[in-house]
């Protein structure tokens, strides 16, 4: 079962909940945690596991073959992303702008733009106690998150059975990387804080999962810190609140030093149990 932990914006506690939930579940059942926040993956700061395998992930970009090129410039006009530029007698590719659509390559009359693999990031697998953990990280300067997320999901599908717990730590927001992450999950847990900013961002996230027609529930993190508006909104909209993690300075402190905390903070542990029950009922 694929469960995504997502939120309308960063900093709501998504990673704290994913890492603790996954580690807890793995003590009882086969569980794999996948960090798909490939631009800023930080689950690894909390899951200090033993490195198992490292894969360099590549995406296809055109490569200019000078010898055969007739400098017609069709490739420049066939690229809708300004990734192909003609400078005097040279064709220059800006890989950061390339969406790998193949148009320049396949429409080139002299076959001078073959597609080649360009490294975009690294996928690593780790093991901590019984937990399998996969992290993908974009190389610095790489901006295209979607291809790496897609390849990481494919890796998970090829290497792990679908009947085990697969926890996806999703990128924040409502843009393309989130859509790619949530596309084929079975259930989404939306993490928010009970504050006006939290509510505003939650509404955007709810709009997104509804557009994708996904089953979902809300987790309130730092419960007690703000007001009741998030709960009111969920009640009005008929949205289930799956768990409420209490506001705790201890949690914030343990987080800042990169520690797993479910077995150190009883009131946090309680909510992990509530979540477990919820997930088993899906």
């Amino acid at each position: 079962m694929k469960i995504a932990i997502a939120s309308g914006k960063g900093g709501t506690g998504k990673t704290t909940i994913s890492t603790n939930l996954a580690h807890y579940l793995s003590q009882k059942e086969q569980t794999v945690l996948v960090d798909l926040d490939v631009e800023e993956p930080n689950s690894a700061l909390f899951i200090k596991g033993k490195l198992d395998k490292v894969y360099i992930k590549t995406r296809k970009v055109p490569f200019w073959e000078q010898q055969t090129c007739v400098l017609c410039g069709d490739c420049v006009s066939n690229c809708n992303f300004n990734a192909v530029t003609k400078l005097r007698n040279e064709i220059i590719i800006s890989p950061q702008l390339c969406h790998s659509c193949y148009a320049c390559s396949e429409l080139c009359s002299s076959n001078s733009l073959p597609m080649i693999g360009l490294p975009m990031g690294v996928l690593q697998t780790f093991k901590l106690d019984n937990l399998f953990f996969i992290e993908s990280k974009l190389d610095i300067g790489e901006e295209m998150a979607v291809p790496l997320i897609a390849q990481t999901k494919e890796f998970v599908n090829q290497n792990y059975e679908n009947n085990i717990f697969q926890i996806y730590d999703s990128p924040p927001g409502t843009a393309c990387p989130v859509i790619e992450t949530l596309k084929d999950v079975d259930f989404v847990l939306l993490v928010t804080e009970p504050t006006p900013f939290g509510l505003n961002d939650l509404k955007l996230a709810v709009e997104t999962v509804r557009e994708l027609k996904k089953d979902f529930a809300v987790i309130i993190n730092r419960d007690g810190v703000g007001d009741n508006e998030v709960e009111k909104y969920c009640n009005d909209e008929n949205i289930e609140i799956a768990a409420k993690f209490p506001n705790s300075r201890k949690v914030a402190q343990l987080y800042s030093s990169g520690e797993l905390l479910y077995n150190k903070v009883p009131e946090f542990y309680e909510q992990i149990l509530v979540l477990e029950k919820k997930l088993k009922s899906i």
Binding site: N78, F81, A103, E106, L107
Partner: peptide, 21 residues
């Protein structure tokens, strides 16, 4: 539309100009 990247490759290969970006 959620999958379309806007690359326009389809528009360029359509033999009857039925696709518009």
């Amino acid at each position: 539309p959620l999958n379309c990247e806007g690359c326009g490759y389809c528009e360029k290969v359509c033999p009857v100009d039925a696709i518009k970006m």
